[in-house]
Structures are given as structure tokens and as C-alpha cells.
Nucleic acid binder design. Sequence first.
RNA 1: GGUGGGGUAUCCAAGUGGCUAAAGGAUGCAGACUGUAAAUCUGUCAGGGUUUCCCUUUCGAGCGUUCGAAUCGCUCCCCCACCA
Length: 394
Amino acid sequence: MNNFSYNVTARSGHGRAHCAIIETPHGCIETPNFIFCATHGAIKGATMDQIKATGAQFVLGNTYHLWLQPGPDVVERHGGLQRFTGWQGPMLTDSGGFQIFSLGYGGVVDEIKGKKDQSARPHSLLKITEDGAFFRSYIDGTLCFLSPERSVQIQQKLGADFILPLDECTPFHMKKEETAASMQRSHRWEARSLQQFFTTYNAQQRMYGIVQGGVYEDLRRESIDFVNSQPFFAQAIGGSLGGSKQQMYDVVDFTMRYLVQDRPTHLLGIGGLRDILEGVQSGVDTFDCVHPTRIARHGCALIAKPEAEFAKEHINLKNKIYREDFSPIDPECDCYTCRNFTRSYLHHLFKAKESTGGLLLTIHNARFMVRWMESIRRAIREDRWATFYKQHRG
RNA sequence: GGUGGGGUAUCCAAGUGGCUAAAGGAUGCAGACUGUAAAUCUGUCAGGGUUUCCCUUUCGAGCGUUCGAAUCGCUCCCCCACCA
């Protein structure tokens, strides 16, 4: 029997926006949907139950982090990530490919903005060879080696429903020839990942392919052809998406135009509200991003577009204007935080450095993302996507 | 009453002749955050202006030494510790 399936349930007739159901051994995911990041096997700042209560359906963990700590064997002896973390629904593990980028080249922020260099954070990525990547463990400094085969083996022990092949996420500021060489190596790594995946096959898992190629259309085409030709269950768009929002939208749309449509498609690491809107329009099924949970811990709450000043998708509760604002973050929101607490109280919690502030905003932001994705699906299902899309582009 | 230590910006706290409108924290005010080494990081923080520069007022108070003082001297006011 097949535990996995992907079925499109509604098409918008405008762009490639559609609804689908992804079936996994741990339940179904309705798409378009958002995947919450539990890098170390925990949603930072909240419990799995609290995230579940927001209506979240899908959670992601990270191979690199869980490999270093507590180690894949410990997770395996629990019976897999779901048992280990308490998240009973569908899960995905990232391969560690992004760490080749983030620990080696710098933050994505500066990439998107097209900046060259930033923080003086020491880079713990030591070297990338054809075999794999050498890291210096950020925990104890020991030398670590992550290869495509190794990443798959670790992910098989972690036991998430979906796994990703190790790839090299290249920075925006990289010459085309280098991006091409990196992409081709990613393809070889993906092929090796598939080989390992099938050699030590686990019927409870499926693998994604990853499209690379940076901002170059011909490279993206080459990468799309590669991914389309390989026996992946699903596919993801990775790598640099450009130096501006518009370029990102263009790269994603271009990529979606040529990717096969009978697989779930994931856009890696993107989670802005507008970004998701554009991704859905281009035909993306799922998104993941640390943004909603991270900004929550930093005092920011996602808010609905009409209330947002200009293009801002969040408000900063640490700002003085909320000191005596006795309204909830969003009166329309049905989350635990909005039903019980004022902006003033949240402002106070952050000023007082009470970690409950981070918890309450994490709950709100998670619920906000869930509601945002629900409203997108509803618009597609009810055949008013074109209007919805135009209205929310601003 | 005696001896010793000390009073620096909103708070804590460096500085013991010029490079000091004064290190570093904290607080305050803002910004950033997109496959999480992030409950983190960055900026700003005496006042004013024609704001890559200029002016005014600052280191308990006052007077003095000096080309020049938060820094040296004298007097005074407060605080702390120990001894009577």
C-alpha cells in the first residue's frame, strides 16, 4: 500500500494557484500550507501542543543540528522524530544544505538585500569538497563531515516523513560560473542522495529534489530538467532567489513554469505574507520559514494587511506606543493570545524580559500563519483567488 | 570626635594634566530578522544648530594652579567603613 500521495483538489484558473492534499503516514497536509521550523526538534518558544492547537499541520527539523545533538541514534531509539518531539503530524527534515550556506557564507537577509558582507561571526564551515562538507561543530568544536550519503542515513534514522538531499545553497554574490559549478555539484549530490535513499529504503519516507541555479534562467532550466528527470516524490526550490523581492518572485515564477506539476512543490525558507501570496500564485504548495517564530521571540506580531502601516507585515510590541494600548494584537484573531491579552500587557512582558511574551507572540504568529494559509486555500477553493490575490498584493 | 575610602551623564561604573562630550555595562528610544550557531543582532542615547561641521552647558560645590583640569591644590557639603 502507498502511504504517500499528492492530489490536486482545486485549481484557481488564475496563475498556477491550486489546492492539494499531501498524504503521509502521519496524516494529511492541505496545501497551500506553511511548515513551522523546529530546527532542534522543538518550536522555539512554544510546545508542540500549543503549535498543534493553532491548527499547524506540518513541522520541520534539521539534520545538521539533530546530528550534532542529541545524535540520530537517540532519536531512532525513541522511534523517530514524532515520538521524540511529541509532534504527531507530518514532518520533514532539512538536509544540512542550508548550513553550508549560513555557516559558510553569511545570513540570508544580506543576500536578499544584495549586501556583500556583514556580521563578523566566525564561519564554522571549513571546506566543501566533491565528497561533502567539513564543519567545525558549533557545540564542541570537533571536526564534522557531512556527505549526501551521510545526510540521508541520518535522516532515515530521524525518521521524518520527508527528507531533503544535501545541496549547496549558494550566495547571491557569486559569479555565474561558480553558481553553475555549485549547482552541478548539487545535482551530483542529489543523485547520490537518491542512490542512498533507495539502497537503504524506508517505505515510511519520501525524498524531495531541490532546484538550484541562483538567479540565472538558463541554470534554473538546467536544474529543473535534472529534478524533473529524477524519481523524487516532491520538489523544492532552493538557492539564491535574487537581490530583491521582485527578482525572487520572478525566479520562483520562472521555475514553477517548468517544474512538473504532479509533485508537491516546496519553496525553501520563504515566509513573508506577500512572498507566500506570490509563491502560491506561481503554483507553490508549501513554504517554511523561521520568520514568524523568530520575530515573535523578538517582540513582533504579525498583523493583517489593512491595519499594517505601509508594507509592514508586523508590529513591534516593544515600541512605546503600545505601552497603554489596551486592545488585543488583532481583534479579529481567535488565538489564545488575542483572546486573553492586551498589547499593553505584551509590551510589558517584553520590557520586563519575561519569556512568556515570546511564548504568547509565537502562538499568535503561528495562528496568524495558519489563518493566512487557510484564507488562501479558501479563496482558491471558492473560486475567488484572482480577487484575493489582487487585493492582497497591495 | 579620630582615621581611611568615596562623590563621574537616567542608573552602575572606567578614567588620575591635553587625543575626553568623557570607556564599558544597564535602562530608554528605534531598526533588522525569510531551508534558525538568533528569547538574537545593529544603531542611537547632555542640549541646540546652517548636522561629514559648529555652538552652549557637564564629572558634589566654590575658589585657585596651568597655555590647557573629571584629573593637581585649598575650603566647604554629603556618603561609606572602622575606631572612640
